[in-house]
């Protein structure tokens, strides 16, 4: 068992780094896109409302 650990441990930081990089990047991408989408939707709602009010007036 100790032999296996001695083979795995030197490579482990690179494997962990690769997986962490993938997961953090995927989550980051999703987070950024959703926050921008929400902001745009809010802005669009305000503008559409304002346009509707202007048309009614």
């Amino acid at each position: 068992m100790g032999d296996i650990y001695s083979q795995v441990l030197p490579q482990a930081p690179y494997v962990i780094a690769a997986y962490a990089l993938i997961w953090v990047s995927l989550l980051g991408f999703v987070g950024v896109v959703f926050s921008r989408l929400r902001r745009l939707e809010k802005e669009l709602d305000v503008l559409e409302e304002s346009l509707k009010r202007r048309e009614q007036a």
Binding site: L26, F29, V30, V33, F34, R36, L37, L40, E41, E43, L44, L47, E48, S50, L51, R54
Partner: peptide
């Protein structure tokens, strides 16, 4: 599947932005 979702979500974001720009001009 994630690639497809990323593409669609970014596209929706871009289309919303274009719609918003058009509305801003109207307002």
């Amino acid at each position: 599947m994630l690639g497809y979702a990323f593409y669609q979500l970014r596209l929706q974001q871009e289309q919303l932005r274009e719609r918003l720009d058009a509305l801003k001009i109207s307002v």
